[in-house]
């Protein structure tokens, strides 16, 4: 069984079978990460470049660790310290790197569609590590893996995605994935941060009421308020946002069930999540980070070059 695609540009292009294959392969890589030697030789003949045109801690470290655990050779590129700062185009930069015999490209870029553009012009396999406000497919996959690991299944699971849906590539990848795997999705946040036609376009429920949403869901995936992506005022203050959409202990204690709390990080503590929620046993935030390495190993392994 193989993936139906050569690149991972977004969840939108994946089939249900692709997603199941990545998640089941990731389970085996998670086992690898528990061994005394947390490394396999599968990609020892593969060279990967991590092209980060936008800042990242977690995703870049996670990819780099996944690559090293697969025995791949890796090179890292940060736009701020490279010739991109001198005006070199994306395609020129990548072609220069590829002429040094690189097989796979992991790319984060602030422009939505940058990895799709690259995929049309270069022969290497491309993995999207986040493009603008479009998609962050490996985050969607690791969130799904974590939900499945914690609750046993995705099918029929009620997942709430809470916060800034408008600017979130994590939300978009999660929605595509959860809908393909037949979970139910509600997006919740202030009306200014939820796209107007999202319900018709993506088949999700929309709620502007946090308490009702928490009562409905099994899993709450809480997003970060992305101040850096907002060029207009979409809510009056962080304090007001926190009062209406921040999750605190009292809210959770008043529910008649225990829900799972997720967050893709980095957390704005005291804004979207209070510390006693983020650090509680209901939260699987650190498991998400751990699972990220296994999921990225699965993606890199399944997309690695084949020369029959």
């Amino acid at each position: 069984m193989q993936l139906s695609t050569r690149h991972l540009l977004g969840i939108k292009n994946l089939t249900k079978e692709d997603i199941s294959l990545i998640l089941s392969t990731a389970e085996q890589f998670k086992e690898v990460l528990q061994r005394p030697v947390k490394k396999v030789p599968s990609l020892r003949d593969v060279t990967i470049v991590n092209l980060f045109y936008e800042n990242s801690t977690r995703t870049r470290f996670s990819f780099e660790l996944a690559e090293k655990r697969l025995s791949a050779d890796t090179i890292n590129f940060a736009a701020s310290s490279s010739s991109a700062a001198k005006g070199e185009t994306l395609l020129d930069t990548v072609n220069n790197i590829l002429s040094m015999k690189v097989d796979m490209v992991v790319m984060r870029h602030s422009a939505s569609g940058a990895p799709h553009f690259l995929a049309q012009h270069i022969p290497a396999a491309i993995i999207n590590a986040g493009d603008g406000i479009n998609e962050h497919p490996t985050q969607g996959l690791l969130d799904a893996f974590s939900i499945k690991e914690k609750t046993g299944t995705l099918e029929g699971r009620k997942v709430a995605i809470i916060g800034d849906i408008m600017h979130s590539r994590v939300a978009q990848s999660n929605i595509y994935l959860l809908k393909k795997m037949e979970a139910e999705v509600t997006v919740c946040g202030p009306p200014t941060l939820i796209p107007k036609y999202i319900s018709e376009a993506l088949g999700v429920n929309v709620s502007y009421n946090l308490k009702e949403t928490l009562e409905w869901c099994d899993v709450a995936n809480v997003l970060r308020i992305q101040l850096e992506r907002q060029n207009q005022v979409l809510f009056s203050s962080l304090r007001e946002y926190s009062l209406a959409f921040g999750i605190n202990r009292k809210l959770l204690d008043n529910l008649n069930k225990e829900i799972v709390i997720m967050h893709p990080g980095p957390i704005n503590r005291g804004v979207e999540l209070d510390s006693d929620v983020a650090d509680s046993k209901q939260s699987i935030i650190l498991q998400q980070v751990e699972n990220g390495v296994a999921v990225r190993m699965a993606v890199l392994y399944l997309l690695s070059p084949q020369t029959p």
Partner: peptide, 18 residues
């Protein structure tokens, strides 16, 4: 042994359970 095969580049196979 999927991740340890020496012919891994010929075909990427889904792993079995360890």
């Amino acid at each position: 042994i999927t991740f340890y095969r020496d012919d891994i580049r010929k075909e990427i196979l889904a792993p079995d359970k360890m």
